[in-house]
Design a protein around this nucleic acid. Structure first.
Lengths: 356, 356
DNA sequence: TTGTATGCGTTATCAT
DNA sequence: ATGATAACGCATACAA
């Protein structure tokens, strides 16, 4: 046994097995050029000494870190369940590929995000995932100039070594708006996210296109910027309700905001969906719990994470590959908050039993 | 400039600045024994060449990885928002301490969890966080025998180098049950988690103690093991409703299960809280969205994560320190699902405006 | 099939 | 205040 307190090294194994370090190295890396006998002996010694080759040393000599960074810009108070799903997808794929995933969660207001990137460079991360609400465009510049393969989640940024995955926000918004129109609504409010956010812009676009397709004139006042929070949406919706008494439906840019909108509607003494129909975006867990259950546009977080990971791995593996963005299709989930629709079965059939 | 394609090394900096590598190293590590002039020059060169010292090399020579592992055993379909909060807390503290946090999410059913640990050893992780539903007791044995400092979340395991943080499950369960009792309920169902899970055992204990304190006889049939899922709780509750028509309240071991219970209650044609009162555990986001809003016992995930991280860091820093477990207090959050109580204000005052 | 020697990019020890 | 040099633990080209 090696001196206690010290991790056994490849030398210890070699000595104990009576061979050279390179022989040990060869069995470690399965070169397949070691005799049955020797290999057996070496493996036994490794077991015996509980040997684990140092990834630190291996990474240094191979000049590869096998590390991927996940940088998440989080907004306080907005613990987005959607992120959790995406992360699960990313983790599954990167682990399968033999990478370590280093997680870094930064508050958007934390000005020290450069420190996180610096440490990411020092760790020689082979690539990076970026998600959440960017503290500013400098993040994009910084990452682009770093030349590091990068994959953005729901942040449409492309460069020579970077690309993104996102949902079909335009299509999803069109579907949502179209659903409301098909139910007879013509005065539809839009509670959007930050105007700066790209997904908000796209959803506005989809909203407009749906209106246009059905010959409904666009009314700018019906569009209000929320901030992706429940409370923000509640306030904005209250204003909308005051200004547009004829409005009969609301499309919110996220389920969280839809829930805020529902509160405002109820506070105004109106009923959902009888007086005002509501539809959201995301399909978070809560969407099926609120009453009435929220109709929404579903995004598959885990799938998004997996696709992101696979793309980043390709970018790393084939440095000359042109980054390829991916737009995932969305799915309309009809529950109760828009009325009139059919009931969406969620496996258990519980919704159906509850009646609409 | 260094040959393109290669990251500049400390040698490149030394050469370009006309000094030795050790001088560069000294400014890098702020020994404070380099002349103003030289330091200035070295720093300029580093900027110019966009130099980032290799953490790989540094870690090897220092024999420290500055890496912490986060192992999360996840149950499919149970995307626990609570975990997300805990992870945020862990990330914040570990990053502050200068550590990289390597995230690994494994499905409980995935038998290859040993691979994750193996890679964790190879990376020379200085410590590990473990959370979620363990695939078996072998995980504990494995981690204990590894001698690695370990911190478990909501998994009461202690050894020479390991300990855990958890909420006061007994106290929380007592509070919840006591709340129901104080509202006049005497026949109270308990939808618990897996019997094997320690937190379930503790919550059962708290439930029993509360009954005893108020002289209410314990009725074994009122206790049913759920599986922490919404659907499981729904089925179990249905059975409970059939078997105990006199039951007037239900305490669920998690908010998710409470929501499932609510569905079953409604399906049985009963009203909440008029016919059956319901209280949960966790205080996840959805708890405030369901109608009626769910009264529950709140656990602070982020705080738990921060405490866990601080404790693990101490364990690493002081190897002879006795691991110190932490039990965080819980808080009763009264909303609408138990009736009779006062209204809990959630900042916005929206609940109050909705009326109860 | 196995061994020897060199280097990966740092830090640290010892000189000067 | 600065420099030369030996580790750190491994992989690999080359020799035997």
């Amino acid at each position: 046994m090696a001196r206690s307190g010290r991790e056994p090294t490849i030398k210890d194994i070699a000595k104990a097995a009576g061979v050279s370090v390179s022989t040990v190295s060869h069995v470690l890396n399965e070169y397949g050029d070691i005799s049955e006998d020797t290999e057996q002996r070496v493996r036994e010694v490794m077991k015996e000494l509980n040997y684990h080759p140092s990834a630190l040393a291996r990474r240094l000599v191979r000049k590869r870190s096998y590390i991927l960074q996940l940088l998440l810009f989080s907004v306080e108070g907005l613990k987005h369940p959607f992120f959790y799903e995406v992360i699960c997808g990313i983790s599954a794929e990167t682990e399968k590929a033999g990478y370590d995933l280093v997680l870094s969660i930064k508050d958007v207001r934390d000005k020290r995000w450069r420190d996180s990137l610096k440490r990411c460079y020092e760790s020689r991360s082979e690539g990076i995932f970026v998600m959440g609400t960017l503290p500013g465009p400098e993040v994009l510049e910084e990452i682009e100039s770093s030349q590091m393969p990068a994959l953005f989640i729901d942040i449409p940024f492309e460069s020579r070594r970077a690309t993104y995955v996102t949902s079909d926000n335009i299509g999803g918004a069109m579907t949502a708006t179209g659903h409301l129109i098909s139910l007879g609504h013509t005065s539809i409010g839009l509670i959007n996210g930050h105007v700066a956010s790209s997904i908000s812009k796209q959803r506005l676009l989809g909203y407009k296109q749906a209106l246009e397709m059905h010959g409904i004139p666009f009314e700018g006042g019906l569009v209000r910027p929320g901030d992706f929070t429940e409370e923000g949406a509640r306030e904005v919706t209250a204003g909308l309700l005051d200004d547009y008494p004829n409005m009969t439906a609301v499309f919110a840019g996220s389920d969280l905001m839809a829930i805020g909108a529902m509160k405002a509607i109820r506070e105004a003494g109106l009923r959902i969906p009888d007086d005002i129909a509501v539809i959201g975006f995301d399909d978070i867990e809560s969407a099926s719990y609120v009453r009435p259950a929220l109709s929404t546009v579903k995004q598959e977080g885990e799938v998004m994470g997996r696709k992101a990971a696979r793309e980043l791995l390709k970018l790393i593996r084939y440095p000359d590959r042109k980054p390829c963005k991916q737009v995932l299709s969305t799915e309309l989930v009809i529950r109760e908050s828009c009325g009139g629709g059919k009931v969406y079965h969620e496996g258990s059939g519980a919704e159906a039993a509850l009646g609409v």
